[in-house]
């Protein structure tokens, strides 16, 4: 039997979407394992093809979201995630994970700050696929819906022009169809230049089945859009594996 690609979910105190994200990864074929940060060292990444930072409130996010988690990560495995990426590994950050990846500098410069409404908001949004060739998005349609649930999801850059550049260059892989939180250029998700590091505020793991949609008659596809998101990634990693790429 062919070996299932390994996904490792880093868990910080306060990470709370790890179980359903692991479930989503397993449902498309990954071998997924949750690793509390206290147990993580450089060797933990051996044989891993995908590192996932799932949603939640790492360390409570009482200071800037993702800040303490990024510092603890540096403390424990400084540089290891960048090496992992350079060796062909994939990194995915969802919601709080996106905030952490941004704080770690593994995604293009920017910050995720308080929504312009000043409020947490849990609702569904329409997203625009701006990077159809991305390994994370290649099975995704031009527009699709995911739920969001965040208070600090407003993506900002030092000046608005930089955000526009990200869109033009395809680094802003996902944008909101509508202004939902005040993000510059309506940016909802970012990828790095390798295309293997990806962060997004919406929650693909919450839309794995068609029935997860708020409209019982939703008929966009046989499965929920999140299924196709994770499936894209699984296929991309399986392709790499069959080509003999190694981490």
């Amino acid at each position: 039997m062919e070996k299932r690609p390994r996904a490792l979910l880093l868990k910080f105190p306060g990470t709370n979407c790890d179980a359903e994200t692991a479930r989503a990864l397993r449902s498309v074929g990954f071998d997924a394992e949750i690793a509390p940060i206290s147990t993580v060292n450089r060797a933990t990444l051996d044989g891993v093809r995908l590192v996932v930072l799932s949603g939640g409130f790492s360390y409570g996010d009482y200071v800037m979201s993702g800040r303490i988690a990024s510092l603890v990560t540096q403390l424990r495995i400084d540089g290891a995630l960048a090496e992992f990426r350079d060796a062909g590994g994939y990194l995915l950050g969802i919601c709080n994970g996106f905030q952490i990846l941004t704080q770690l500098g593994l995604l293009p410069a920017g910050s995720l700050v308080h929504n312009t409404s000043g409020r947490f908001q849990c609702r569904w949004v329409t997203l625009e696929n701006r990077a159809p060739d991305s390994p994370f998005l290649r099975n995704m349609p031009a527009r699709f819906e995911f739920p969001i649930a965040h208070a600090e999801g407003r993506f900002v850059t030092t000046d608005p022009a930089t955000a526009e550049t990200y869109v033009a260059e395809g680094l802003a892989a996902l944008t909101y169809a509508d202004d939902v939180n005040g993000s510059f250029a309506r940016i909802a998700g970012m990828q790095d230049e390798t295309g293997r590091v990806f962060g997004l505020m919406p929650h693909p793991e919450r839309f794995m089945r068609a029935r997860d949609h708020y409209d019982p008659d939703w008929s966009g596809a046989e499965q929920g859009s999140g299924h196709y998101f994770f499936q894209s990634l699984f296929e991309a990693i399986a392709d790499d594996q069959s080509k003999g790429a190694s981490v």
Binding site: C17, E20, R119, F120, Q121, C122, W124, P147, A149, D212
Partner: peptide, 22 residues
């Protein structure tokens, strides 16, 4: 309702606000 994360754990099949308009 929007201030509460009513979808975390990914199992909220019938949500507090739903229908075609959500």
């Amino acid at each position: 309702i929007r201030e509460y994360d009513h979808e975390v754990q990914g199992n909220t099949v019938l949500k507090p606000l739903a229908g075609a308009s959500g």
